[in-house]
Design a protein around this nucleic acid. Structure first.
Lengths: 159, 159
DNA sequence: TAGTATAGGTTATAACATAACAAGACCGAC
DNA sequence: GTCGGTCTTGTTATGTTATAACCTATACTA
């Protein structure tokens, strides 16, 4: 099973393990410090396949004994995003753990407006299409946000 | 010249006139009220090809004699977005006038991080690529945000 | 072990957004 | 034309998201 996605049933503890292992790898190879807050923030994001607001993460960090002020959460989240271990979902002003850490990827997000699950799809085709338009405009892309809001298979069936 | 874009030199008063005309058309055909605040908000967005924050629009509305509280701006902007006369750029938490009003379009935005110009490209290909991925996931897309941050031709050349 | 860089904690505040209610404008039915 | 409903604007108040600035602590480096 090469590419589980958030909408399909899957062994979730596997997601978590893979992501944490990737984070530790990264820290080792890039000489970064995966400190307790940062690790805990990643674990919090990994608990569910949805995006959490910074203040939601903050609450849980505080409950785990870390500082309770906004910068605590924002700094940990910024670190994770910079290192590609998490992504910010602009549509939600919220953060989600990266589903394909380590890979060089331009992700696209599919957000279910009913159950709030967020699936990350590794997005070569969409990115290629963006690149093509960019070339026509003479625009040099640095980063993209590709997001869709809609209904996931489970919620669609339920309705 | 079929499709001017924000990055290329163009007759800007043309953009404005077209957009206002389209807005009036819409109001007529859909039986909507393009009230003074709404019209003024659109004019404000049309002044430049960049995205303005709601509070920036608010300031200018207030200066023009309208109410000075946030809901005044948000309501006018919401109206314009609902009617497809403006778009929200999620990456910037800001609003920009629609460059192709009336057309049924899934826009993509190209945001220059140097001069802050925002170009809107009518986006069939990118949307098609998103649809393909969505189909594979069993996901039904309702709305998309397709945005890229980078460098526009002019700023690229300057650097 | 002194010096520098990085990280975490705190206070305070900035920036973005909406809920809830009151007053006025518009519009169709009569 | 005027009554009643609906839509629009305005206001106060508050909620939510994000960052600036400063200080202490930790950790790595020479």
């Amino acid at each position: 099973m090469p590419d589980p996605n958030a909408f399909a049933p899957h062994d979730h503890s596997g997601c978590t393990k893979t992501a944490l292992a990737a984070a530790e790898d990264l820290a080792r190879t890039r000489g970064l410090r995966l400190t307790p807050v940062r690790r805990k923030a990643l674990e919090i994001l990994l608990e569910e396949h949805r995006a959490l607001g910074a203040y939601e993460v903050l609450e849980r960090l505080a409950a785990a004994g870390f500082g309770g002020q906004p910068p605590v959460a924002y700094r940990a989240l910024d670190f994770l995003v910079e290192q590609g271990l998490a992504h910010k979902v602009r549509r939600l002003n919220a953060f989600t753990a990266c589903a394909h850490p380590g890979e060089d990827h331009a992700p696209a997000f599919f957000i279910c407006s009913t159950c709030h699950t967020v699936a990350e799809a590794p997005e070569a085709t969409v990115r290629a299409a963006m690149d093509k338009v960019a070339r026509e405009l003479g625009f040099a892309i640095e980063r993209t946000s590709l997001e869709a809001v809609g209904t996931c298979p489970a919620c669609d069936e339920a309705a």
